[in-house]
Design a protein around this nucleic acid. Structure first.
Lengths: 231, 231
DNA sequence: CGTGAGCTTGACTAGGTTCAAACGGGGTGG
DNA sequence: CCACCCCGTTTGAACCTAGTCAAGCTCACG
């Protein structure tokens, strides 16, 4: 059984890594495996938050939809990330799969019961929650105070940080999301995203061999762009 | 001793309200009272997060400052609100007083010790953290997807909700923050804030007897503006 | 190959920023 | 007590960035 966990991309996630190999079987035994097709939803914002998920494979968006159809993506969710861990009575965001997705699902209640025998789990949950809030505030700053090119530079460094561990430590990675997703993450339009990519390419900071294959040629230069130290 | 708590504006805050009148003495006995002048800082983003605060009187901003001087306000903090409850090793935001401020300060550690005897406290802390995250995501949506007038309409309803319990249930309230603060909260300039106020006034949705005295004449109309249902 | 979805680019427009000036109310000093 | 000043706010005009609309391109897939 534990074999599934040993091979899981999320084995070293903030929560699972708190459990030794011989303990993880129990964590796994109370979990359900969930699969969602590309484009499908893992959960909806109005659902009551009964479950906690840990993404094993694939990438998701954490998003909110307005009545007029406009969408704001709050975060991109990668293997090892948790979903629903700091929700109130409802999730308050929907989670959509950008690719075929596998996740471990626990009853919130079951996980909380584990806190008694494994108090470190609760501590880890706190840490995760505080990191999520900090990341959301980073994004808030970017949306409020950065222009289009700075937003894209920030986005690329953010994705680089998220994906490096899966794509190896090269300077190239494959974007799992469309330009529309990027636009909805940064609060701009698709065209603006496209123009900003071109601008960074012209500056020599990145390469795009294909639209979704990014090579970071100058991370320090990208950081300068984000920090508004260059035009 | 407990008298101070009985009269405190934060007596019914999410945390203190978990304690009965006869129990609150203990919570108070391990607290320090902190006072900060208008414009002063309660804490800085780079401080290590050793303390938790509960605001008793006054209003603060929760803000982040960039190297180029640009500022993003993440939230306005009112009596009863908690500060530093879901920080990582550092606070990651600074807290500035908009008016003379009084707060109760606890050692994070002391509060965590109380969890054993009063498990409800820990639960409340979770709830607070999840509400903070939800509110931050609301703001993220607004910054990413709303225009200037919609942002101001959202802001007014947000402040109305925050202040109603202190200002009584009238339709008028006094803004404790400047136009610059509002601008830095919504990711626009002062001039844009001013023009948006004028626009809402012209629409008949609000009144401004003085610059900082707002009367909401049509809450439903304001909600329509926020939801993009009107121009 | 041909098709279509997603991406890029161009031309024009609109909303917000910038810079500048005027306004208004509260506080200070003559 | 009034005049003056100062700070925050409002308003105006020019500018510019990002949005809009439209066309063309690329590439994966049938």
């Amino acid at each position: 059984m534990g074999l599934l966990c040993q091979q899981c991309l999320a084995r070293n996630s903030a929560l699972c890594s708190a459990m030794a190999d011989d303990e993880i079987d129990h964590l796994f035994s109370i979990a359900h495996q969930v699969k969602v097709d590309e484009g499908g939803y893992l959960l909806h914002e109005e659902d009551s938050a009964k479950f906690v998920y840990n993404l094993s494979y694939g990438v998701c968006t954490l998003e909110r939809l307005a009545s007029d159809g406009s969408r704001q993506i709050m975060a991109f969710v990668y293997p090892g990330d948790f979903i629903g861990i700091n929700s109130g009575p409802f999730y308050s965001v929907s989670v959509q799969a950008l690719s075929p997705v596998t996740a471990c699902r626990w009853q919130m209640k079951d996980l909380q019961d584990l806190y008694h025998t494994h108090p470190i789990l609760e501590q880890r949950v706190h840490e995760i929650a505080s990191r999520v809030l900090a990341a959301t505030m980073d994004q808030l700053f970017v949306l409020g105070r950065k222009n289009a090119v700075e937003k894209i530079a920030y986005f690329l460094l953010y994705i680089d940080g998220r994906q490096r561990k899966y794509d190896g430590h090269s300077d190239s990675f494959i974007l799992p999301m469309t330009r529309i997703d990027i636009a909805d993450y940064l609060g701009v339009t698709v065209e603006t995203v496209s123009r900003a990519f071109s601008s960074l390419k012209k500056k020599g900071l990145i390469d795009l061999s294909q639209a979704w294959v990014v090579t970071l040629k100058d991370r320090e230069g990208l950081r300068d762009v984000v920090e508004h130290r260059v035009n």
